[in-house]
């Protein structure tokens, strides 16, 4: 259960699966505590706790073709599939890469062997929203960003938005290009007229 803390891990990474791991860890801990408590009670009192009597009686008359065995088997298969999906579904990256070679360091190449420059998805959404709010005709805006797409929900007071949507997508795309995002995510917008 150790991890490499000597060097930096990459800033742009996929989800760490913390929630399924915490749930599995708590279940493992609970099972371990229950087993240890049962054993310690047996050592201290000389008899097993009475609450084991029920499971022991049930086990004594349980046949392999009992429906309960089938139900336990199905539950275990489902839990196994869920755990494997949690482990193998990659999930989206948390950040977008910025091309830092465009910044024109030129002859003054920085004394670094390996570079990584990223912008978080939340930051990209905020940048897109801020640029959108600067455009004439935009009343309010909300932005969401993934590594491939930035979407803006825009409200305008214009009765005839006309080319507002195109102006928004062009301006936001230009801002993201100027920032150096590589690749530049696709920019889409939905414009609603405020009644």
């Amino acid at each position: 259960m150790s991890r490499d803390g000597q060097r930096s891990s990459r800033l742009r990474h996929r989800p760490s699966r913390a929630i399924p791991s915490i749930i599995a860890g708590i279940l493992l801990l609970a099972a371990g505590v229950a087993l240890a408590w049962l054993a310690i009670t047996r050592l201290a009192n000389g008899t097993w706790p009475p609450l084991l009597q029920g499971p022991r009686d049930w086990l004594a008359v349980l046949a392999w073709n009992d429906p309960a065995i089938r139900q336990i088997g199905i539950a275990a298969v489902v839990a196994g599939v869920v755990l494997l999906l949690c482990a193998f579904i990659p999930g989206g990256f948390n950040a977008l890469t910025i091309d830092d070679s465009r910044s024109g360091a030129g002859a003054e190449e920085p004394p670094v062997q390996e570079r990584e420059t990223v912008m978080t998805r939340r930051a990209v959404a905020r940048l897109a929203k801020a640029r959108c709010l600067q455009i004439d005709g935009v009343g309010s805006a909300a932005a969401t960003a993934t590594t491939r797409r930035v979407h803006l929900n825009v409200t305008t007071s214009l009765h005839e938005p006309g080319d507002l949507r195109a102006r928004i997508t062009d301006a936001v795309r230009a801002r993201l290009e100027e920032t150096g995002l590589s690749p530049v995510p696709q920019v889409t917008a939905t414009v609603r007229s405020r009644d």
Binding site: S8, L11, P110, Q113, E116, V118, M119, T120, A123
Partner: peptide, 11 residues
Amino acid sequence: PLQRSQLQIDV
């Protein structure tokens, strides 16, 4: 020289 430089930009 630095081994690695990581820069995360937030807005």
